[in-house]
């Protein structure tokens, strides 16, 4: 899993992650595909970001093409860590296929969906 979504040498479809801290909030951009062979690592990385220094996570999914239930579990694990600190997880601009997975699993009840990172940061 690459840490740079703009890395042109990254394998097509590989999951890429970029983390930017905006005040107390970590904005995490996921791009590519969260396939079964990388989702365990995704959990460790997301939980690690929360444990490091934040209670609120904004997940920018605009360029995420695929995620499975283990990937959803990774986001939930980060959400539970955030909740311990009275924070939470917000999701930004998922593609229709990803939005449908969130809807089918009813995870939109845990993760509010926003149209942009700025809108997510501005929301309470």
């Amino acid at each position: 899993m690459s840490n740079d979504p703009a890395n042109p040498s990254a394998r097509k479809g590989e999951l890429r992650m970029n983390v930017e801290h905006r005040g107390p909030v970590a904005v995490v951009k996921l791009a590519g595909s969260a396939h079964m062979d990388v989702t365990s690592k995704l959990r460790d990385q997301l939980v690690g970001i929360v444990d490091e220094k934040t209670s609120d996570l904004v997940l920018d999914l605009a360029d995420l093409d695929f995620i499975n239930s283990v990937g959803l579990g990774a986001i939930i694990a980060a959400y539970l860590r955030c909740r311990r600190r009275n924070g939470g997880v917000k999701v930004v601009a998922p593609k229709p296929a990803i939005q449908e997975i969130l809807t089918v699993t009813k995870l939109t009840s845990l993760f509010p969906v926003h149209p942009s990172v700025d809108a997510a940061l501005a929301s309470n």
Binding site: R43, N68, S69, L72, G73, A74, I76, A77, Y79, L80, I101, V104, T105, K106, L107, S109, L110
Partner: peptide
Amino acid sequence: TAPDRISLPNGRGIML
């Protein structure tokens, strides 16, 4: 998807 299980990290595979 039940309220008491929605925040468990596992258990969605067969449902999907």
